[in-house]
Design a protein around this nucleic acid. Structure first.
Lengths: 265, 265
DNA sequence: GCGCCTTTGTCGTCCAGATGACAAAGTAAG
DNA sequence: CTTACTTTGTCATCTGGACGACAAAGGCGC
């Protein structure tokens, strides 16, 4: 009991200590921020935490293109992706769509709007057939209060999102379209590599296992569809990527990464 | 004791209830996210919390342009602005500077890097003579563990940052320079209006009480210095803003807001 | 006061990428 | 197999805004 109570008093102590003693520091913060922000919240929970959370959740099945919520809806829930993929985007006044995030299985989303309780400003639609757990705000905040490690995890995911968005902003302000496309593919390959690629996979390739139209890519990096098309054609021509049944394979990851280093020089 | 202990078990209960019963929802989420993200962390703490936090802090005095930290530094501290203004920016590989945030008195910054403990990816420099409190990571995480309401506040600030950055991304991807400049001025006026404008103030005007060079503005909105100069000249010509001893006044706030609505239509 | 450095105003010039317009190729549902 | 819709590939055209270059103002330390 005393151990538990102390834990509650400082849920952050362990993590903080871990960091202090960790001597390894990665160079690629942008990639790290992406990966961290895409962290699998669900699987980071313990068995009992998962049960606690899911018992107050409601499972929903979405068909491809179903809307989970729209701008203007009240933000009453957070969601966890069970399977599939959710596209989170905003529509500017000119009708232009900007994709802010893709949420993959295990990821939590809808968190950032919870605390102010304002209306949703973004849209969430299923990018393919998708299952999500929906958790009411109150249940979720109760859960976080009762499970400090989970709260800690939530904070670190939000932090990673902040850093990832910061990088996105810098990239949009200073990189050209080809660089942005290439970087996106590398990042997506990193986070989607968990789900195994079924089709013709060649050793050494990286699989970007997300179904993306050129329009999606354009909306992700703030470019026009046509420019993305021709950029991809170019990347294909120089042998950096190839198309395998509806998705991309990065033929030589190092090739593409070197291209990114180069554009950075 | 039992009351306290229950509070610790669910630090989020109160806030969550407040939100549930709140029937007012603002329309301008972008502005709200900005304001929330600029929330005065320090003054939101109770007397005893403030003391707890500041007693393990170190006060630092910075001259204008002093660097607080640079990209590459270890992230060992969070900071709270006591007075002045801190500019947080990132430098792209091409040398282009992108300003991610200005931190005003009471604001906390450096939080997002804390949890992963990677090296800083951004620069923090004093925009003018500035005083900050520096708090070591471990002390800060201990503090958050011991003060759940403060942890809650920290989460809501991070959430607001996520939303504000999302809006910034959408704006950068879809608005032209004039719109971005105008919106920036309106936002800055909102958050800087706390500090009273000394110089020639005319009734009805909004004061953007931050010293900004055109270059700063350019770095904030991802544009070139020249374009910002001519855009400001234009805004001045149409009577939307005027320059008062080193800073701007928004002559007719509604005029500028209408201009934003217009560009949005 | 006098230099020195930073910030602004204002030119051309140039180009990455937006936009519009179609045809061709997929894909999905009947 | 057919029809209808979505997604791609590829033009040709146009432009917002980047970039370079300088002169004119400010500020500021001495």
């Amino acid at each position: 009991m005393s151990a538990i109570s102390e834990h509650v008093v400082n849920p952050f102590a362990d993590i903080s200590t871990n960091i202090e003693t960790n001597d390894f520091f990665s160079i690629d913060d942008e990639g790290d921020a992406w990966s961290d922000a895409h962290a699998n919240f669900l699987s980071s929970l313990s068995e009992s935490e998962t049960q606690d959370l899911l018992k107050c959740s409601r499972r929903m099945d979405l068909k491809s293109r179903d809307h989970l919520f729209r701008a203007g809806d009240r933000s009453n829930d957070v969601y966890i992706v069970a399977g599939g993929c959710i596209r989170l985007f905003q529509v500017s006044s000119t009708g232009k769509e900007t994709i802010l995030w893709f949420s993959f299985p295990g990821e939590i989303f809808g968190m950032a709007e919870l605390w102010r309780g304002s209306n949703r400003q973004i849209y969430a639609v299923a990018n393919e057939a998708t299952q999500v757990y929906s958790i009411r705000r109150k249940d979720f905040t109760n859960f976080l209060g009762a499970h400090p490690e989970a709260a800690m995890k939530a904070i670190s995911i939000l932090s990673a999102r902040v850093r990832a968005l910061g990088h996105a902003l810098v990239g949009l302000a200073s990189d050209n379209v080809e660089t942005r496309v290439a970087r996106l593919l590398v990042r997506l390959a990193a986070v989607s590599s968990g789900t195994r690629c079924c089709a013709g996979y060649t050793e050494g390739e990286l699989c970007v296992n997300v179904r993306l139209t050129h329009q999606d890519i354009a909306n992700l990096i703030g470019a026009s569809r046509q420019t993305v098309s021709s950029t991809l054609a170019h990347l294909r021509k120089i042998g950096a990527v190839r198309t395998v049944s509806h998705h991309f394979h990065i033929v030589q990851p190092d090739h593409l990464r070197r291209l990114l280093q180069l554009s950075a020089a």
